[in-house]
Write a protein that binds this DNA or RNA. Structure first.
Lengths: 156, 156
DNA sequence: ATACATCTTGGAGCCGACTCCAAGTCAAAC
DNA sequence: GTTTGACTTGGAGTCGGCTCCAAGATGTAT
C-alpha cells in the first residue's frame, strides 16, 4: 500500500495555514524541505501534515515561531545527542507557559469581576503606601487590585 | 497633601518598560497624554503608573496593544454611553483568553508527557483513518495524540 | 493549440511593536 | 559660562511574521 500524499494546497486546507505561509515556514526552517515531484512541486505526507498541524496549534498559544522549534524536535526524531539540551529547553518553556497561564487566568478573573460588578471601578484610591522604587517583578503580575477581595475562582 | 509625581524615567523603572516604549504608547493612544511641567517634561501620577503597569501586565499575556484598549477602558472611567459595547467586547475577549489558556494547558501536558517518557515519540503511525478535507477547527486544537491516553492533569 | 489551473521562485511590501538617533531645550553644578 | 544630565521631538531603522506580486514551468480539458 502506497502512502497518501498531499499538494501544498491540500496541506494548506488541512492545516488552516496559507500556501505562502507554509512555504515561508519552510524557508525559515520551521518545516523540513519536502520531497518534490518530477515537475518540482512539493509533496507532503501524513508526517508533514502532522507537523504542520502542530505548528498551527502552537501558534494559537501565542508562542513565537522560533520558540516552536524545540517542540517540533521533541515531537518526532529523538536525536540522543541533543536529549539533555532539549530536556532543559522544554522544562524552561514549560515554566514560561505556566506563568503565562496564570497571567491569563488573572485576566479572566479581572474581566469576570468587572462584568459582575458592572465595573464602576474601585479606583486608584491613593491610600496604599506601597510602591518602592524597584522595577516590576514577574511575580508582581498578581497586582490586579480587585482580585485580592475574591476567593479562588476557576474558569468556565 | 500634594500628589506624588514621577518623571518618565521613574515611570519606566517602575513599570519595566523603556522610556521610548512609554512615549510610543502615548503616541498610539494606549496611554493618555500626561500633564507637562513648564519645561515640557512629562509628569506622571499614581493613576498613570497604575495604567502603565496594567499594560505591562497585559503584555505578558501576549495580547496585542490594540486588544488592550478595552481593558484600559474597563479599568478606570466608566463612561455609561459605552457600557453595552464594552461589556460585549470584554465577554468576547474572555472567551478568547479561556481558549488560549486551554491551548496552553495542553502544551504543558504535552511537555510533561514528553519529559516523563523521555520522548522517543509515539510517532505518526499512519493507522488512524481520520483527516477529512476540512480546515483545522478551533476545537481540533486538542489533537495532541499523546494526551488522549492520559487522564485529566493539573498544572504545577 | 490554446486556455485554464496549479504549481514554482525571488523579491517587494506591510503591519505591529518597538528601538535608535540626531538635534535641540532647559536646569543645576562646577 | 560651559559642561553634564534629563528631558523633548521627529523620523528612520529593525525584526518577526506574514502577504502579495510577477514571471515562468508544467498538466489537463476542450
Amino acid at each position: 500500500m502506497i502512502e497518501q500524499t498531499f499538494t501544498i494546497k491540500q496541506t494548506a486546507e488541512l492545516t488552516g495555514l496559507s500556501e505562502d505561509t507554509i512555504r515561508y515556514y519552510e524557508k525559515i526552517k520551521l518545516l523540513p524541505p519536502p520531497d518534490r515531484k518530477d515537475n518540482g512541486h512539493r509533496v507532503y505526507r501524513r508526517k508533514d501534515i502532522h507537523t504542520t498541524k502542530l505548528i498551527s496549534c502552537l501558534k494559537k498559544t501565542g508562542i513565537s515561531l522560533e520558540a516552536m522549534k524545540p517542540f517540533l524536535k521533541a515531537s518526532g526524531n529523538p536525536d540522543p545527542a541533543e536529549y539533555i539540551e532539549l530536556t532543559r529547553t522544554l522544562k524552561n518553556h514549560r515554566e514560561q507557559i505556566v506563568e503565562q497561564i496564570s497571567s491569563l487566568q488573572q485576566l479572566v478573573d479581572f474581566i469576570d469581576v468587572r462584568l459582575e460588578d458592572g465595573f464602576p471601578s474601585g479606583e486608584y484610591s491613593d491610600q496604599n503606601p506601597d510602591d518602592g522604587a524597584k522595577p516590576i517583578s514577574v511575580e508582581e503580575m498578581s497586582y490586579f487590585p480587585q482580585l485580592r477581595k475574591r476567593a479562588n475562582r476557576r474558569i468556565r
